[in-house]
Every structure is written in C-alpha cells, then in structure tokens.
Nucleic acid binder design. Sequence first.
DNA 1: ATAATTTTCCGTAAGGCATACGGAGTTTAA
DNA 2: TTAAACTCCGTATGCCTTACGGAAAATTAT
Lengths: 262, 262
Amino acid sequence: MEKPEDLARTMTLLWRRTLGSPQGTRGPKQRVSVDEVIRAGIAVADADGLPAFSMRKVADRLGLKLMSIYTYVPGRSELIGLMVDEVIGEVPHPPHRGDWRARLEGVARHQWDECHRHPWLLQVESSRPWIGPHGCDRYEWQLAAVEGEGLSDLDMDQVITMIANFTAGAARSSILARRTVEDSGISDVEWWEANAPILEKVMPPGAYPLSGRVGTAAGEEYNAVSDPDRSFRFGLDRLLDGVEVLLRANRREHRIRGVEEP
Amino acid sequence: MEKPEDLARTMTLLWRRTLGSPQGTRGPKQRVSVDEVIRAGIAVADADGLPAFSMRKVADRLGLKLMSIYTYVPGRSELIGLMVDEVIGEVPHPPHRGDWRARLEGVARHQWDECHRHPWLLQVESSRPWIGPHGCDRYEWQLAAVEGEGLSDLDMDQVITMIANFTAGAARSSILARRTVEDSGISDVEWWEANAPILEKVMPPGAYPLSGRVGTAAGEEYNAVSDPDRSFRFGLDRLLDGVEVLLRANRREHRIRGVEEP
DNA sequence: ATAATTTTCCGTAAGGCATACGGAGTTTAA
DNA sequence: TTAAACTCCGTATGCCTTACGGAAAATTAT
C-alpha cells in the first residue's frame, strides 16, 4: 500500500535536519515549511485525536488549501510518522542520574508524561515503523539507563521493552479513563440513570462477591472507578522489584563462577 | 455525543441473554438476529481491522442493505461495544489451578491469546466502557486468581490491573510487529533498499554505540528486529517476581504483628 | 532577454464512510 | 377492519483521502 518512492521521501524528511535540503531551487517558494506542517499536525491531533485528524484541518490551520499539503508530505500516514518523531524529540532526554532504579523510573516517567501530553501517540498504528532521528536517540538513551549493571545485551533490550510495554498499557488505560470523564457528551448522572435500573435487574446480590467487595474498597479509596496514576506507580514498583531479583540472580551467578565484582 | 436512550438500549442488548427479549411483537419479523449481527461484525473486524470496519460490510455479510443494520443496533460504536463483550465470553474462563503464580500466568495468557485472536480489541476506544455480562465475569475471575494470598482488597485490584496493563502493552507491540511483516504492501527488501542509503549517510559509525551493540545481539538471537512472544514471557516473569516480593513483605508484616499464618 | 524547466498551489472529481429522515410494506393488537 | 408498530431500505448530507491536471511563479539554459 506504500510506494517505495514515498518511503525514501519520508526518510529524507525525517532526517531533514541532518541531511539539509538538497532540492533544486526552481519554482515558487513554499509558503510555509515542513516543520510548520508537522507542528500544525501535532496541534490538530492534540486537539481532536487521531481519528478526527484530517489533512483539511492541517491545511486550514496553515491558511493553505487542502491539496497543497501534499506538496509538503506524501500523505496522511507519512505525516503522522513525522509527527511522532517530532514529538519524541520535543522534551530532551535528561542525563541519567542515581542508581539503576532511579534511572529506569525516569525512563518510564518520560514515556508516561509524553503519552499524556500527546494522547494520540498510542493511537498510531503505522504499517512500518519509521526510523527517525529522535526515535534512535530515544532507544540509545533508554539502553544507557541499564548499561553497566551486569545484564547481558539481550536482557538489556528485554528490560527496556518490558518497561515500555507496561508504560504504554498503563498510559492507555489512563487516557481512556480521562476521555471517559472529559468528552463523552453524557454526564455521569445520565450514565447512571440509564445503567442503574438495568444493572439492578441483572445483577442479583451476591452474584459477583469478589468484584463487589474489591470494587467497593477501590471506589472508596479512589473516589472513582480507577486511579490510573496510582496504578502506574504500583505496577512500576513491582516491575522494578522484579528487575532487582534478576540483577541479584545475575550477581550471584557471577560470584559462583568466580567473577570479580566492584 | 451519545444519546441516553441509545445507552439504555445498548445495555439491554448487552444483557439480552439475562433479560430476554421484552419487545412488542408487532411488525415484520427480523430477518436475522442481533447475535448474527454481532458475529458478522466480529468476522469483519477480524478480517479487516477496526479502521476498515464498516456498517456496509456487516450488512453485506448478512445479505441486508446498509440501513437495516440500524434496526438491530443503535450505531457503529455501540455495535463495537457489543462485539467486545461477545469476544470476552468466547473462550470460557478455566477454573483456577495451582499456586498464585500459575493462576496469574493463566490470567495473563488468556488475555494475550484473546488479543491475538481478535487484534482489533486493542484498537477499541469507546467513550464509555460498557458494563456487559462477560466483562463482569472476567473481572470476577481475575480477582479469584489472587484471592486468599494475604493481599488487601486494594492490592488485589492493583495486581490485576498491572497484569492487564502489561499484557495489553505487550500484545500491542506483538500485533503491530505482526502487521508490519504481513500487510504492509512493501517487501522487506524494498524497505531496506529505500532506507539503507539514507541510514548509512545519516548514522556515522559509532553514533549509537549501545543501540548498535544491543541491536546486533538482539537481531542475531531473534532473527528479527524483535521477538514479541519472548518479550511477553520475560516481562511477565519479572512482574510475577515483583508480586512475590510484595507477598513476602506482606507475610513478614503479618508475622511481626503476630497474625497467624496457614 | 527569452525560452525551457521545475515546482507550488489548488480546483475538481472519484470513491469511501456514518447516519438522519422518511416511505413502503408487513404483522399484530384493538 | 382499522390503527399501530415495526422492518427494510432509498436518498441525501456532509465528512474523509487522494489521483489528476492546470495555472502561475521562479529559476536555469540559451
């Protein structure tokens, strides 16, 4: 579905800062820049989400007509790829400080914040992952957080992947919950008024003993049906405890084999 | 954006097995059933994914015309809600066996398999989560996996949420990777032919030392850019190690307080 | 200075989508 | 027998992406 020439063109757009603009200079000047198109795209996606993200809205925001956008980027999905790499580079990766645990927490928190700044990131499903400059920097920075702790190269990759997967899942829950309260055009009251009579009819008392007990406890503690931020911290703590178990096991094995430790 | 009467209607559709069909019997008989509509919807989503899921395709599959579908379900998003609950009930939850670790592994694996059977599940973003019968059963079953291990009600909820979040994130990666090799219309060769010259120009040797080292090791081991199933198992093992740490800490605290243990 | 070339901007149109509305026909209840 | 309720569906509105081609602008070649 994707033409090879579009692929090459998108790659040169992704790496435009490194490559410069090697175009012939004939023809009228462009009224805006690729960067402006990308930033406008991000603004639209931030405001409306990815399903409602349209080329027309990007054009409107720039004072251009719809079809002009296609002289800047090959198409919608390529523009989204460019937006993703742009957003990854938005907040610089802070230098790593503290022990491995603090560093990994930083990596996870960085991704968590990013997902909440641009909730459409988790809606992106490109057929090919684009290899852009900021994505590459990100991976290098993530790996640096676990370098020098005695993990194998493979386990370094696995640990990073695990953190990223968990964070993505938790952020997805969080964003979905936020959308629920924010932009569903129906109020909590209306929602309960419509649901309660049916749920009462359909759930005999004692039908869901554990759900009832736990749901009540959770509801009282959270004052809501869930507390995504808290779930993120809880899960991350357990995950890092698990990493600690792995690191300890590695160190023990090294000692048995007679390898020196710092 | 959602009308209250549609909400109530969808709830009675969700719980149709429990409620029966309390409709007046006037007018022509329906040519198909709601269940058939839902199953047709699932078939379409399985085949084409959620973005390409359309009411017209559902109608075509049932031998009906487009607008007739709207006499069965209020609209597209409500139909998707019904499809989700249907799919959750598709494979019965097996009774829990073994220790807590085996049980939680079963819970995670159940969700993992489900996501791969119906990859569109992770594309669903409803404004309101529908409370359906199978979803309720699922939560009860998940909680039963950690009941009786000395966790507080709140921590039971947190542990389940954590497993679900991680599994969702890992499954998302897995499904994205699968789609990349399967249905992007461009071959691996074409992809590299378009990317390699630019990447060579743009990545001086030594620019990404850790990525280079780890990426090479991972590539050789996986024979691919990633191995999602392996990442899932790795992450789940670390996660469960982390739960074990929590359980141990709980037990120690109980002992200090002089509470009996089984 | 003039012609050729390249590039931008954009109008139009094709083909997809959800769904609001209303009409025709069918079945049951009054 | 008539009124009501319900199903099926044709039509229309208003979104969406993107292929194609034309007009105008800016540079390069002559």
